[in-house]
Design a protein around this nucleic acid. Structure first.
Lengths: 231, 231
DNA sequence: TCAAAAGTGTTTAATATACACCCATGC
DNA sequence: GCATGGGTGTATATTAAACACTTTTGA
């Protein structure tokens, strides 16, 4: 390479055709929360190499499609949800990560309220799995999953993303259980309440839980301006 | 779309050819530090649409090349440096972000010691720019730059990445100046020293600065195990 | 009346901030 | 001797952590 003649996509007109043997995809780590447990939505893989293994939800990005749009499309197609929380995390591009050819994949994580989801595939092909039970996944999806989960754990301590896992009305107990499930630790109830309240994100609805087999707790919702700051 | 027949890159054998009209690239935001100032390495763009504008250093990713490897290759080609600190930040994939066609680009930031760099292009085409003077860049590079700079600002408070901007031997003053330049704030000298020392990352070399027009400060280096934790 | 969780404050420890003087060197 | 930055400690404020009892409801 001579000193001043590196031809380059950013500096010179370059013919792209030689580089077109690459496809791009998105993979979504979709988290949900149910029965005190953090779960992730997985689909059964049908490729010979990974027959029967579970994989993340993803798809190829269309020729004219934005990455974020593609991730939204996947989520909409699989859960029926719009206006979900999506966060780009990392891009995985090892040359042989996918058996079909060179596929560079951008990973997103998403937080959804499980009970709002209308899954669009038969139950045995698309399924919520407890996060703590995830051992192996198809492709490099275990690595993608781990990376996204670590990011989620870091994000919840400084941002109110976690509310997206709960229904609009929730009790402080539910909110604490979500934090405990994600961080994998037990939290002191009094200190947790103090901290959450000091953030001034919650609006007291002056309503109580019902259908709980114990003393009902107050219900709260995220303040509208905090909701707006999320998307 | 019928309920259970979404054909998908993760679940079925899919023909990729229709998706191959995409190229992938890496773009590197290379930070350096000189004369109390944070700088970024930019190259002059020669494409008609952005003639004369400055752009980040980047290149197309080869058909068999890993993303991280491609970023290292770009850095090596432009600065002559190996073993630099590289951090993947975000992937930008808007359909018309590059005039040559669909190019999805993964952004990295890198921290280098300016005085170790042997720039491989004529001085007027490849140049260190003060970060505070960056207004516009070619393509969507201003957005990429801003994203990487914000990540750097967040990263330095919890990780010793910043040492990569300094020579192996440095004084606490130099280290403080780097922090101040990145964060854009003035820091209290006594509190800064206390905080750095409490991290137990530094090894006192029992040497003094020379060539400074004032009382020389002690020289330190990053402890070897902290260096290892960086890469 | 029992089980389960709601609700509620104080004390202590750790961390972060604010702030001022004398010292060593080069010019 | 003057300009520049080196080197140092303490007091205060803020934040985080530990910890226990009474109350309410459903079964």
């Amino acid at each position: 390479m001579s000193k001043s003649t590196i031809k380059n996509i950013n500096t010179h007109a370059v013919e792209l055709n030689a580089y077109f043997g690459v496809a791009i995809s998105v993979d979504c780590v979709i988290f949900g929360f149910d029965k005190r447990e953090l779960k992730v939505l997985l689909i059964r893989c049908d490729l010979p190499k990974y027959k029967g293994k579970w994989s993340l939800l993803g798809d190829l990005v269309g020729p004219e499609e934005d990455l974020d749009k593609a991730a939204y499309r996947v989520l909409k197609a699989r859960t029926g949800l719009r206006n979900v929380y999506l966060q780009q995390v990392h891009t995985f591009g090892a040359p042989r990560r996918h058996p079909a050819g060179r596929v560079v994949s951008t990973a997103y994580y998403s937080l959804v309220n499980i009970s709002n989801c209308k899954l669009t595939t038969q139950a045995n092909e698309l399924h919520w799995h407890p996060v703590k039970d995830i051992r192996t996944l198809a492709f490099d999806h275990k690595k993608i999953f781990d990376t996204c989960f670590e990011h989620l754990q870091e994000d919840i301590v400084r941002s109110p993303v976690v509310f997206k896992l709960l229904p609009q009305k929730f009790s402080l107990r539910q909110l604490q259980h979500v934090h405990e499930a994600i961080l994998g630790v037990a939290l002191d109830r009094r200190n947790f309440r103090k901290k959450i309240m000091s953030m001034e994100l919650l609006e007291d609805l002056n309503e109580m839980e019902n259908d709980v087999p114990h003393r009902p707790g107050r219900l709260y919702r995220l303040k509208p301006k905090a909701v707006a700051a999320l998307s």
